[in-house]
């Protein structure tokens, strides 16, 4: 336990004495802010048009927040590989892996320490998104339901957890950061668009591929629907990534 905490603290110190964390946080704020602003502006325009022609109220959750959550998912897809790519590759290259592997700690403690440290950064990113949601919540009448917002955030957290856990594993496979970053990004992009296959193929295999898509499972969460199937999917990917990373550490270089 204490080793997890030790690694977590050290990781956070490293994040914030180098520009890495600030850059990720700042760029995420810019990108997510732009998405939010564009969508809000579009939504306001649409709803004014709707009002003029006597249409009903537009659903703020479906029209504004859902696309925002999806775009946050895409933004994380781009940024989180840059957080995870250094986590192990840097230790291998800098020789500090020898310290971690010869210290009286279990491999899993090291893996979890690094995972939770990155997860803390993810929480900070989502906190920014939460600020946007608070603004919407304040001005929207009726207010969007807290339960569905909570489910959507849980979905984003789990999605981010999958990114981090798989990114951690890919980072443990190489000593070159850029290789780790590019493979992680490529994997996430493939997982993101895997559900496209059902657009032109209705076979069983296509459905299996589509099931593996990160997007399919995020849709339910973002709509405020909590399905055990989606929970199992995300959690098993997170555990698989962490387990594989710990196994990887036990093997020789």
């Amino acid at each position: 336990m204490s080793a997890i905490w030790a690694i977590l603290r050290k990781e956070w110190k490293s994040y914030f004495v180098t520009p890495a964390a600030y850059v990720v946080l700042a760029l995420f704020a810019v990108i997510a802010g732009f998405f939010f602003y564009s969508m809000l502006a579009y939504y306001v325009m649409q709803s004014m048009g709707g009002g003029m022609f006597g249409g009903g109220r537009l659903d703020v959750h479906a029209m504004l927040l859902q696309p925002l959550f999806f775009d946050v998912g895409v933004t994380m897809l781009f940024l989180l590989p840059m957080v995870t790519m250094r986590l192990y590759a840097e230790e291998t290259r800098g020789g500090t892996m020898e310290l971690l592997k010869t210290a009286p700690v279990r491999r899993l403690e090291v893996v979890l320490g690094k995972f939770f440290a990155a997860f803390g950064l993810l929480l900070a990113l989502l906190l920014m998104v939460f600020a946007y949601v608070l603004v919407v919540w304040h001005y929207a009448h009726p207010h969007p339901g807290w339960a569905s917002l909570g489910v959507a955030f849980l979905g984003l957290l789990l999605l981010g957890g999958v990114y981090l856990s798989l990114g951690l594993f890919l980072s443990s496979l190489t000593r070159t950061q850029i290789v780790a970053g590019v493979t992680t990004f490529a994997l996430f992009l493939l997982l993101w668009v895997a559900d496209w296959v059902t657009a032109y193929d209705n076979g069983r295999f296509a459905h299996i591929i589509a099931y593996l898509s990160l997007t399919t499972h995020l849709t339910n969460f973002v709509q405020g629907v909590l399905d055990v199937k989606d929970l199992v999917y995300y959690l098993s990917l997170i555990f698989a990534g962490l387990f594989l990373t710990a196994r990887r550490m036990e093997l020789a270089e």
Binding site: A3, A6, I7, K10, K13, T96, M97, L99, L100
Partner: peptide, 20 residues
């Protein structure tokens, strides 16, 4: 096995925690 971004003291405190 050093972390170049840490100070000597922070690094040794980290190792001390790691070594329980």
């Amino acid at each position: 096995p050093l972390y170049p971004e840490l100070s000597v003291r922070d690094y040794l405190l980290f190792v001390a925690r790691l070594k329980k």
